[in-house]
Design a protein around this nucleic acid. Structure first.
Length: 310
RNA sequence: GCCGCGGUAGCUCAGUCGGUAGAGCGCGGGACUGAAAAUCCCGGCGUCGGCGGUUCGAUUCCGCCCUGCGGCA
C-alpha cells in the first residue's frame, strides 16, 4: 500500500510561514494544521501573529483558538489532536499541511512520544520541596542513581528536565531514557516532506523588530490588558513572548519602551533557538527567501517539488 | 587661547595603590521528548587614543600631541 503523505512547512518566527502556507494549501487543495504552542489560545491574537479570517482565503486552519487562556497545554495533547486531524484529512484524500515553528512539536510528530507518562499531580512541588535545603545537585544525584543515561545527557543545573526525568521514572517505573526508545511517529508510516523557510539572519532580525512595532500599533497592549483582566493565564500561556513582557510593564517593573525592547530582544533570541533546533534536523529541505521575493513565488516553488508526489 | 572632564570589547561603562583587564547590553554556538514563544549550558587578546620618558615592567606615573564634551574668554 502506498504511504500517505504529509507536508511540513517550518521555520523561525517572522519567516512568513503563514502567508506561504495559505498559498501552498490553495494550490494543493488542502487544510492547514497549525504547529504552534501559543496560537492554540483564544484571545491571544496580535502577539502570536495569528492569521486573520480574511487572510485565510478560505483555507481551513486547525488547532488555532482551541483552548482558553487559563487552560494548560502540552506536546502530548497536541500530538493527539494532530493525529486525529491527519487521519480525518487523509480520509478526504487530502495531504495535510503542518505549519509552525515549534521544534519540539515537529520532532514529536515525526518521531513520536512515549505514552502514559503525563504530569503527576503534585509530584514536581513535592520533589522540589524535598530538595530544598539540600545540596544543589541533590536531584541530579538522585536521577543518576535511577537513570544514569538520562543524567549524563543533562546538565546538573537543568532542574526542569531533571525533575521531569524523575517524574517519569517514578510514574512508569522505567527510566525516561528507556521510554524514549519506544515510540513511533509519522515518519514511520507516512511519506513526509519537510520544507524550512528562512531569511538571512540580519534580515530576519529586522523583520522581527518591525513586526513588534507593528504589534504595538495594532493594539497589543490593549489585548494583554484585556486578557489579564479576564483570565488568570495558564502556566503555558503566560510565558508567551509579548505577553509576559507587557505583564511586567503593567505590574510596574519597567517602562513601556523597555517592555518593547525586551520583546524584540527575546523574540530575536527565540528565533535563534528555533534555528538551532531546525539546523540539526537533516530531513528539512531549506528555502532561503531573498530580498523582495514574494510568497506566491515561494509557494509555487514548493508546489513544483511536491506536485508529482501527491 | 585658557580651565575642567573624558578617550578601555560592536555599544554603555567599571577597573588596575605599576605586573598587559571585566560587567551589563548586543551578538555567536549548543542542548532539548508531557511548561518548549519555556528551560538550561558554553563563548570577550581588546594596538586599555598616539608618540616619547621614568621603570626590571606602563593601559595604570610624567611630558607632548591628537580628539570628544562642557565652561570661560
Amino acid at each position: 500500500m502506498r504511504k500517505k503523505k504529509v507536508i511540513f512547512l517550518v521555520g523561525p518566527t517572522a519567516s512568513g510561514k503563514s502567508e506561504a502556507a495559505v498559498m501552498l494549501a490553495k494550490k494543493i487543495n488542502t487544510e492547514i494544521i497549525s504547529c504552534d504552542s501559543m496560537q492554540v489560545y483564544k484571545g491571544m491574537n496580535i502577539g502570536t501573529s495569528k492569521i486573520k479570517k480574511d487572510e485565510t482565503r478560505g483555507i481551513t486552519h486547525h488547532l488555532i483558538d482551541v483552548i482558553e487562556p487559563d487552560e494548560e497545554f502540552n506536546v502530548a495533547i497536541f500530538r493527539d489532536k494532530v493525529n486525529s486531524l491527519i487521519e480525518k484529512i487523509h480520509r478526504n484524500d487530502r495531504v495535510p499541511l503542518l505549519v509552525g515553528g515549534s521544534g519540539l512539536y515537529m520532532k514529536i510528530l515525526l518521531d513520536g512520544i512515549f505514552d502514559k507518562a503525563g504530569e503527576v499531580e503534585g509530584f514536581r512541588e513535592r520533589i522540589e520541596k524535598e530538595a530544598r535545603g539540600r545540596l544543589e545537585d541533590y536531584l541530579y544525584r538522585k536521577l543518576k542513581e535511577v537513570d544514569p543515561v538520562a543524567a549524563d545527557s543533562l546538565h546538573p543545573k537543568d532542574k526542569r528536565r531533571i525533575i521531569r526525568a524523575l517524574e517519569v521514572y517514578y510514574h512508569l517505573g522505567i527510566p525516561i531514557s528507556e521510554a524514549k526508545e519506544k515510540r513511533k511517529g509519522l515518519w514511520e508510516k507516512h511519506s513526509v516532506l519537510i520544507f524550512g523557510l528562512t531569511y538571512d539572519r540580519q534580515e530576519l532580525y529586522e523583520r522581527i523588530n518591525k513586526r513588534v512595532d507593528f504589534m504595538f500599533e495594532a493594539g497589543l497592549l490593549d489585548e494583554v490588558k484585556n486578557l489579564v483582566d479576564k483570565f488568570k493565564l495558564s502556566r503555558t500561556a503566560k510565558n508567551a513572548l509579548g505577553y509576559k513582557e507587557l505583564m511586567g510593564f503593567l505590574e510596574g517593573e519597567y517602562s513601556l519602551d523597555e517592555a518593547k525592547r525586551l520583546i524584540k530582544r527575546n523574540t530575536r533570541r527565540y528565533a535563534k533557538r528555533q534555528l538551532t533546533w531546525f539546523k540539526k534536523e537533516p530531513r528539512i529541505e531549506w528555502i532561503t527567501i531573498s530580498e523582495g521575493e514574494g510568497y506566491e513565488e515561494i509557494a509555487a516553488g514548493i508546489y513544483a517539488k511536491v506536485k508529482n508526489e501527491i
